[in-house]
């Protein structure tokens, strides 16, 4: 079953985090990515740019509305998405626990309801 591990954490201000700490985090994410890959469960892993780079698009009120900024302004923002394919929730929680982002933020574990695979939505 496919699960999304959604990393949420407070976005640091510029210069708030020292280069040493950034290097450590990159090291940890590198090891995490390799672990997911070698376990054969990784579908994709994306760490997102900071929220000021976000553009929000909607046609909900009729015409196209393009807006600067994220959908919801919150203290903690969506920071990255890991898509994995594992047998059950226990396995997904196990991977979420190992995610470096869990050390300073929260990981939302969400099962995928349907995915577009080989030209169609899975049932």
């Amino acid at each position: 079953m496919r699960y999304a591990l959604l990393m949420h954490y407070r976005e640091p201000a510029e210069g708030e985090i020292s280069p040493e700490v950034i290097a450590e985090a990159q090291e940890a994410f590198g090891a995490y990515g390799r672990a997911l890959e070698s376990a054969g469960v990784l579908l994709s892993a994306d760490v997102l740019a900071l929220t000021p780079a976000t553009t929000t698009v909607t046609c909900r009120e009729g015409g196209l509305r393009v807006q600067d900024g994220p959908f919801a302004e919150t203290k903690e923002a969506l920071a990255g998405v890991f898509m994995i394919d594992v047998p059950d929730l226990d396995a997904a929680i196990g991977w979420a626990e190992k995610c470096p982002g869990a050390q300073w933020g929260v990981i939302e574990v969400r099962p995928v309801a349907t995915a577009f695979v080989d030209g169609g939505w899975t049932s």
Partner: peptide, 14 residues
Amino acid sequence: KTTRIPFRIPDRAD
């Protein structure tokens, strides 16, 4: 059902 909580006895550590 939707999150697929397994009917399984976990490893000793868990």
